[in-house]
Amino acid sequence: MFRGNQIKTAALLGLLSGILVLGGYWATGTEQGALIGLIFAAISSFGSWFYSDKAALAAYKAQPISREQAPELYDLVKNLTQKAGLPMPKLCVVPTQTPNAFATGRNPEHAAVAVTEGIMQILDKDELAGVIAHELTHIKNRDTLTQAVAGTLGGAVTFLGRMLTFGTMYGSVNRDNRQGGNPFGILILVILAPISASLIQMAISRTREFSADRGSAEITGNPLALASALEKLESVGKRVPMNGNPAFEPVLIMNPFSGGGLQSLFRTHPPTEERVRQLQKIARNQQNNTSFAAN
């Protein structure tokens, strides 16, 4: 399952980059447009790789804390980090009463885990451990980098569409100095490409959330604690929305404001009910394995 998710994620990221390259070519009708798209993809990927942790932390005004400031939280994270086989990440607190958490960083050596003031008030120690283990799994699987690259590529698709559209309408971009580009290509870049990019980015996010839930269960050995935490987060989060850049919503452990039906296509996270069912299934399997080993 893990390998399949990795392959799916890589394919979706490749598709995002392909939209940039093909969109540039269709809009201009030349290799120059494709090259512009390729350059945007490369710059976006490198920028998100290097600055992803700083951007996410700044978006939610996360403040780094030391062990002296929050010894219980720090020791909890350190203990879970050791169980996960990871270096200690930077620990941050977000000054908001909205219960949520996220992880960011280009690799385990440059990672950060952030929790809100609100989440520490409504979760007990086991539930908070489940949430933090979920975020540590994102770091271990390098989902933090994947999400950053996906989000940046998605934004680049929209920006490139606007730039090339302006160029093809008001300037000459073809080699033979014909003004204007392919109208169908412009339509793709302006309307269809951004929608497609958003759908791909959200599909990546949903795939990685299930994997992180399983990772949390493995680290803590208590999948029901995370299930309980998710139910609390959804219930309280609906009443206390979290302010921040919507582009970073996929990094949060939960975004409770996704609707059903057609709106489910634009979910950044799987339905909480399904995540809870999966965790309950893991708990039953753990119990059965324990019973079998005892016999």
Results as ranks from 00 to 15, higher is better:
L189E: 06
L91E: 04
R175V: 12
L22Y: 09
G215D: 01
R142C: 09
R267K: 12
S198Q: 15
M254G: 00
Y51W: 15
Q287G: 02
A111R: 04
G24Q: 05
W49I: 09
M120F: 03
M88R: 10
A34E: 03
L164R: 03
G37R: 07
E117S: 11
V173K: 09
R3S: 12
N285T: 12
N243Y: 13
N79G: 13
L13F: 06
A101S: 10
F166M: 07
T144Y: 07
P194C: 01
Q201D: 06
R239E: 14
A58P: 02
E72Q: 14
N243Q: 15
E31A: 15
K83C: 02
P99E: 00
L76S: 10
N100Y: 02
A70Q: 11
S172M: 10
R206L: 03
V113R: 06
Y51Q: 11
P270M: 10
N289H: 14
G260T: 05
S66L: 04
V236R: 09
A212V: 00
L187F: 14
G259H: 01
T290F: 14
L233K: 02
N245Y: 06
E273I: 08
P256Y: 03
T9L: 12
S45C: 05
H269I: 11
G215A: 04
S66F: 03
R3Y: 09
T104S: 05
I19Y: 08
L73H: 06
I139G: 00
V94M: 13
I188Y: 14
L199S: 11
M202D: 11
